[in-house]
Each structure stands twice: as C-alpha cells, then as structure tokens.
Write a protein that binds this DNA or RNA. Structure first.
Lengths: 341, 341
DNA sequence: CTGTTAGCGCTTTCAC
DNA sequence: GTGAAAGCGCTAACAG
C-alpha cells in the first residue's frame, strides 16, 4: 500500500509526490528541479531520481497561473486551405519552436464570427501574443487595439496603419522580374497578371511599371489583368501576339499564368527563351520546376514572412514596443531555363 | 483612485475585480458567469455588466489547474513542408475547432530529438491527447504506451500494433483505380508507380493486382516502380510502348507520374483517352485539373483522415478506450477526361 | 440566493 | 541548505 500512499491520485505525478518520495519538502523539490536556487548536490540527486521514477512533468498550468505568462502564441489563420498560408505558418512555428514557445493553431475558415470565437478562446488561454495570418495580400480588418497582447499580421496586412504587418514585397517582386528580363536583353516586355481585385496583382504591376520607367522604356502595353489561371495565360498570349508580335519578354503574375503563357507560346511556334523570355511568380515548385522549359520565377520567401512575424511578437512579449508599420519582406529570383540559356 | 483600487494589477481583469465592481463575492460572480448555478437575475446582470466593463476573460490556466484537463490537443507533425500533412492537419483542426478544444501545433522537422522535445512540452502543458501526423504512409516509431494521454497516429501508422492509426486506404485506392479502367472497357492495363521503398507504392500495387485478379485478367506486366517524378512517368511510357504497344490503360502511382505519362503518350501520338486511359493518384488539384486532358485521379480524402483521428482522441478523452487498430479510410475517384469521354 | 472556505500544483519570499 | 506559508485565479462544496 506504500504505492497507493505515494501516488493517491490517478493523473500524472505532482511535485508533492516527488518531494515525499525524495523525503524533502515541496519547496526544496521545486528548487532542485528548476535549478534556479541552490540545493545540496545530494538532495538534488535524490529529487531528480524521484522525479524520474514517477515520470514527473511539471504542470505548466500551475506555472502559467503563477507567472502570468503561458509561453504560447496564437496563430489565427483565415483559411488553412490557402497554399500561401502554410509556409508562413511553418516559418512562424519554426521561429517559435526553437525558443520554447508553443503555437496554438486556429483556423477561422474565412468566417469572421469563427475568428472572433477563436480570438476569445486565445485570450482566455492567455496567449502571450497573436499572429494573424491572412490568405491573400489584400488588407484585412484589424482585430483592434484594445487587445491585452501584441498582435502581428502576416501575409495579409491589417487595414489599420497603427498595426504591425509583415508582408511579401510584391512591388519589389514585380520590379525584380522586369529587371531580370532587362538584364537578359529584353526590351519589348509585357505584363500578364491576375485578378485586378488583388493587391498582389496591383503591386506587382506597379513594380513592373517602375522597373520599365527606370530603364527609360515604355512598356509594350499597359499591364493585362485577368484571373490567376493557366487559361488566362494562354488567352493573353493570343491577344498579345496579335497586337504586339514583337514581344520578347513576358512577366507573368503567377506561375499558373506563366504556365499557360509557355504553352501558348510553344503552340504559336515561339521558342522560349530564344524568341521570348518568360518569368513567373510564386516559385511554386510543382509548376515551375516541371514546366518545359523550367520556369524562372520570383520566390516570395513566405517562410521568412512567418519568421519575422514571429520575431516581432517575440520582441513585443519581451517588452519592446511594436513599431506600427507594414514591413515588406524581400523576395528573390529563382532562375530556370525560361528566361535565358 | 477608485480605478486603481479596482484594477491594481496591470494584466487582464480577474474575477475578484469583477466581483468587487459588481458588489458580490467571487463565488457569486463565478456562478453568474458560468451559468451553471442559480443566481438572482438582477445580480447576474450586475456581474455581467461588470465583466463587460472590465473586458473580463476567465483565466483558462486557473480552470485547467482545477479541472485537470486543458481542452487542448497536441498535433505533433513530422514536417510541415510535406504537402500531405496540411489537409490532415486542417481536418483535425476542423474537427476540434467546432468543439471547444484547441490545437497546439509542433513541427519536429523530421528530427527525432526535436520530436521528443516537443512531446515533453506537450505533456507539460497537459494536453488531453496527441495526434502524431507523419509525412508518408510508411510506419513510424511508436511514441510508446507509457504516455498519460491518448495518442492517435494519422497518415503514417505507428509501427506498434497496439497503437491506433488512421491511414488512407492505399490498397483500396489501387483497386478503385484499376476497377475504373476496367469499367471503361480497358483490358491491357499497366501500373506505373513511384519509389518502391514507400508503403504507398506497395499498397497501391497490391490493390492494382487484386483488382486485375478479381477481373480474371493478368496484368500486362508486373507493376513498374521508379520514383515519384514526371520524368519517370515519361520514361516508363517509353519502355511500355516498346515492350507492350497494346497497352490501353495506365494506373499511375501519383499525379506527377501521371502527368509525365500523359505527356509521353501525346508525344508518341497516342490519344488519351481514346487509345489509352490514364488515371492518377492524389487528386492534386493544380496538376490534375490543369493537365490536358484533365486527369482522373484517386482522392485520398486526407481531411477525413485528420477528422477521424481527431474523433478518436476525442472519444478517448471522453473515456472510451481506444481499440488498437490501423483504420484505413475510404478513398474516392474524381473523374476527369483522361479515362473516358 | 449568496458568501465563506478550501484547494487545484507550483514558485517564492522569509525564517530557521 | 531547507522548510513553512502565502498566493497565482478560479470553482465546488458547504453554510448561512
């Protein structure tokens, strides 16, 4: 019955049980295990042995209650289906995981009510901070500023300038794309982008136009907007070859559009990259790496967006005040065979 | 200074503060807010008003400590990059989110040490259960049975038969694929699969062979294994057309392989689906829907794998003992133009 | 219907 | 170097 006496409860062992087994007080056991206070080496060993034997794991809820912090951060995703969310999410988890904060994941599934519900749950759980991850780069409603924890927006910026938002730099991306085409000697360059309702499309187009202007060139024609599909890429090429057959470079708004562009060019007898250079956007491996020829593309570095967002909440938790801003993160070029031999 | 008296602490409001503002005891305030015990309507209103005014949110850590449960489940992912993990994860989050349990997400990044580290953190946090999500369907090491909480394995089964694993039914998938080709009148059917080191490849091949046998047919040749790439799909078709030009149906081990198969067939002058029917596996939208012709494919229903895993932990938490088993989940066929007009 | 009391598991003064 | 006691915020008896 000694066993019963030492472990009367059914659940995991408590510190009191460890202390009793080691023949010390709870206070001493605590000190021995946390290591923050001095304890005689012999005692320490006995406590450690007892803890080991009972498979003791300190109840984090008790610590949370005491410390007022939980070492958790809420990840409020708008929709886990979105393929852009995952890298952001993985980057954030990575940045936190190497520290000792854990991530509580909530999927609002595009529903504002569910988002409020999850927000409340996160606050009840006393998360130390929140990252709101959107599924497009269009601004989204702010959660407001009456929240007792720091909030950082990732991918989709907040519509409130007083918030902190970490976003991919689509303007720089558009510009990087056109600069690359210019660098490989192209001069008659068109931009075929996606749905104009997307900030991503508008921003990339702005970068495109800025790049052309810096080079002292007029774009072949104004950016063409459509949707984010392969079909639109094909259709746009038909238009383009009729109206501007001299085209020698195409900046596509996405890899899917680029794939359509490549197909249509091939079918029109144009050789890529000899006759026309094509660059995509997103560096979506499955599309870019397997298209023929391989598709040069802009990689938005979404993991970094997640990591930086995590860093910002981390800093805020540590006490640094968040500086309200939209922080665009650098993008980079992944070169394949569609722009140059 | 009344304000200071009522809110001496800096953090979120406590129940005691709400009680004081409402002029009642903490116990009454608690009863009024939880609604589990009877309180005079007028008092209730006062308490609610006070809580509202102070933006009170009950400290979940305190409740956890009291109740011994936390209403959280750990999601131990082996690698968030894997594209098969995300739907499983989303399914689990969905199943839990509609209840009131939250998910703590941990990414082991394929590292056993990190996995142990995260496991310990989850146990410290007193999660009520754990779902281990693997990134392939190959069996993975069990976490063991000395754990104080129910564990369910999703996608990758545990290598220990005493555990509960929820997996996609790859055998049924292989069979469903070949049955479909048989149903559309094909008889000379080959199977081009991926890396034979993958259980997924072996299982689908077994299903394929079983389906052929049930139909009283010999497969055109033994399943061909290679890797999961488009290139292998193309190469396999070259081999196949040389050795068995009468082939009229191909079951591909993945959509990527299928895409290569489609390309190679087209280049060899074969019309799909007139001359040859092709079926893929995974129903990876971006590939299957945009290939030409659209690719009929097996959808593994991964969200359901996640949801069922969530249900099993949920049941275990509620007290039902987990029945050790590998539970294969049904898959389904998504028909497009590559198998029949 | 309301308040008082005890205690969840832990860390931390403060005496000894 | 060690232990007794207080208390983090909350809920569940039990009295009143």
């Amino acid at each position: 019955m000694t066993e019963t006496q030492i472990r009367p409860s059914t659940g995991p062992a408590t510190l009191a049980e460890v202390a009793r087994l080691a023949g010390v007080s709870v206070a001493t056991a605590s000190k021995a295990l946390t290591g923050r206070h001095h304890v005689a080496p012999a005692t320490r060993q006995r406590v450690l042995a007892a803890a080991e034997k009972l498979a003791f794991t300190p109840n984090q809820s008790a610590r949370n209650l005491l410390e007022g912090r939980t070492g958790t951060v809420g990840l409020l995703a708008s929709d886990l289906e979105g393929r852009f969310m995952i890298p952001v999410l993985a980057g954030a988890e990575d940045a936190f995981g190497t520290g000792s904060v854990n991530v509580i994941l909530c999927d609002a599934r595009g529903d504002a009510v569910r988002e409020q519900h999850h927000l409340k749950a996160l606050l009840n759980r006393r998360v130390d901070g929140i990252i709101v991850v959107g599924d497009s780069t269009n601004p989204r409603p702010s959660l407001g500023h009456r929240l007792p924890v720091p909030v950082v927006y990732a991918y989709a910026p907040s519509d409130d300038a007083a918030d902190v938002s970490i976003v991919p730099d689509n303007v720089a991306g558009g510009r990087l794309a056109v600069d690359h085409l210019l660098a490989v000697g192209r001069r008659s360059i068109a931009h075929v982008s996606g749905d104009p309702a997307y900030a991503a499309a508008q921003d990339r187009a702005r970068g495109f136009l800025a790049g052309m202007e810096s080079a002292g060139l007029d774009p072949l024609l104004q950016p063409l907007f459509g949707d984010w599909s392969e079909r639109w890429g094909r259709d746009a090429v038909s238009l383009l070859l009729r109206s501007h057959p001299e085209v020698d470079g195409i900046v596509a708004g996405s890899d899917q559009i680029a794939r359509g562009v490549l197909d249509a060019l091939r079918e029109a007898g144009k050789i890529v990259p000899d006759d026309v250079s094509v660059i995509g956007y997103d560096n979506w491996e499955v599309l870019a790496a397997t298209s023929r020829p391989g598709l040069t593309s802009i990689d938005a570095n979404l993991e970094q967006v997640g990591r930086v967002a995590a860093m910002r909440v981390f800093e805020a938790i540590a006490g640094t005040a968040l500086a309200p801003a939209v922080e665009p993160q650098p993008v980079n070029l992944v070169m394949r065979a569609s722009t140059i031999h």
